[in-house]
Design a protein around this nucleic acid. Structure first.
Lengths: 334, 334
DNA sequence: CAATCACAGTTAAGCGATTAACTATTGGTT
DNA sequence: AACCAATAGTTAATCGCTTAACTGTGATTG
């Protein structure tokens, strides 16, 4: 595999000159540029990134950190769409993506993650940070890796979806359709700050609506199986419910399934709404009314923010507005 | 950030000794091991992987190559589960995963990919290789990166799901339930070798069953929207159909949706079967009869194969057996 | 008892780029 | 004509680690 040296020899110049030409650092003539470029082409030279990383610290690798805290990472389409957004801008800018899925032991990231942070491999980092107890982006920052938080953990550089507003939007819609007997399938709040916000948003609307009904809330685990179980319980214990809100689509789809199993028709007998707008939400029966978090935009925004930082700018945080997607799983209540 | 030098100084030995201790290369005493380890601990030393990569060629990075050919990568849960399997064994063995999503121009991988292959970053590579015209693993191999093919493209080291058998299993099941009027939603065969195999498997069963019915096949694009359109067409043009087979679950779910829209009840009026057993397949109404490809196992097997290669072994190829998952979307035909 | 060997550790030469500091040439100003 | 700035290119140090080649012990052995 040809090296800079080889190129220099072939072009009849020094390695420094080759390096300059390739990085477009001023002070060389058009003639040498051509000599160098020809040599590069003829030899099929490609820079050794490991060497470049060592000598300049520029590795062209950014780490995408998806903490392996609950099952979410590899089962949640939302995560994939975020990755899609990140990938799009990174690839376009010539960056590679290193996928890191750290585990947590005693509220500390595992050693593999810490090693990675100090490996010299990573030029920047984007971490989904939605648990209370730890911020993976902050660990990055502490190891001098420019980092951006994707989520609700506080951090200097941050991109997040306005989950408060999303919760608000959803609950407002539900109330506006005349529903008063509402059941909620959520998750343990300490598990996830985004969900906390979502719940706060819903609560905010309820507090201002002077409902005389105490909403039953059941805590589950994000999975569709969890949704089935929780919805069954909810429907059994609260036959008065006219709508079930699940804090994500997978559980909402579980609720659909549970209702079906109990011979309840959705949305005629019971309405169901979700959150996320995963691709499947548009093909369930009935199609799911939900909130679109714009995951691809979230991914893109976080990558753009990071790249700006790497270019020495001081970009400001960005919050992405969620959007209500009205489909057929919720019927107005008379 | 402390370096090997710092550790050596602190432990009162040479850098070579430190390196030996850390890599467990023979010939040092227990006493020095302790001195070194203490120094490592006290300084919080972590090796600089970029330096290690440069000097030894071991980077601890393996590339996972998901070609960006159709929309699949970020929308197909199957891909994520494969990644889950790869991640599990790589992380356990201390390897990091670099995600590469090369595009194809004129049947050649884009330059970004070629640069990556020669970057010196990559110790090994796993590529999903299911298109006829190009093998990403082979490009890796040609650049001296040990590679494994995940899919049906021929290659020295290879892991794949037995799609022929999967197709066979599925069609046998359909026929065994008495169905004779069968419609198929597939994709353009040149798009995907795995699908070709799947179709061959189905065809094999049909050829040996002496059906007097010429199965209509419609070509779509893997998406659930595509499934909706294709199923509508199929059901309109072939009202005699008693079952629709889609070559993936997303299209099958689309078919479910299309049937519903046409006021056909599944499975009473029309049966639907899919392929993949994505998580959602267990929560549709009715639950989807399908084939499980064991994506996590596929991922694990390919990672294990690669790691064996990196350890100098000459492992043999592995094929994973698919499994028929019988649920409720197909009813016996009288 | 001399030769051999296993062990413990050191020295120093890379790996392939980047880049600060330097030299040499040219052209423009005053 | 003298000086300076801009341009074009080179030299060599450096990044942090690995590893081949080497030195110096003491124990083993024929």
């Amino acid at each position: 595999m040809p090296t800079l040296q080889d190129v220099a020899k072939r072009a009849g110049v020094s390695t420094a000159t080759v390096s300059k030409v390739l990085s477009n650092t001023p002070y060389f003539s058009d003639a040498t540029r051509h000599k160098v470029m020809d040599a590069v082409r003829e030899l099929g030279y490609r820079p050794n990134l490991a060497a470049r990383a060592l000598s300049s610290g520029k590795t062209n690798i950014i780490a995408v950190v998806f903490p392996f805290i609950y099952d979410a990472i590899f089962k949640d389409p939302f995560v994939m769409r975020v990755l899609e957004g990140i990938e799009a801008v990174c690839t376009e800018q010539g960056y590679n993506i290193l996928l890191s899925t750290p585990r947590l032991h005693d509220n500390e990231p595992d050693d593999h993650y810490m090693r990675l942070l100090q490996s010299g491999y990573i030029e920047g980092l984007i971490a989904i940070d939605n648990v209370e107890s730890v911020s993976f982006a902050q660990y990055g920052e502490e190891m001098d890796v420019p980092s951006v938080t994707l989520g609700h953990h506080k951090g200097a550089y941050r991109v997040w979806s306005d989950n408060f507003k999303g919760g608000k939007l959803l609950m407002e819609h539900v109330l506006s359709q005349g529903h008063r007997h509402i059941g909620i399938i959520s998750v343990k709040p300490e598990m996830n700050l985004a969900i906390q916000e979502r719940m706060r948003g819903m609560q905010y609307v309820i507090d201002h609506a002077s409902l005389d009904y105490d909403l039953p809330i059941i805590e589950s685990d994000f999975s569709s199986e969890g949704g089935i179980k929780s919805a069954s319980t909810l429907l059994r214990e609260h036959p008065e419910l006219s709508v079930i809100i699940a804090v994500n689509d997978r559980m909402a789809i579980g609720a659909l399934s549970a209702a079906h199993a109990m011979d309840l028709r959705v949305p005629d007998d019971i309405s169901v709404v979700g959150y996320d707008d995963i691709p499947m939400a548009a093909t369930t029966q009935p199609k799911l009314t939900t909130i679109n978090q714009k995951p691809v935009e979230l991914g893109k925004a976080s990558a753009e923010l990071l790249l700006k930082r790497l270019n020495g700018e001081k970009p400001s945080n960005v919050v992405i507005e969620p959007e209500l997607v009205v489909r057929q799983s919720l019927l107005p209540q008379r």
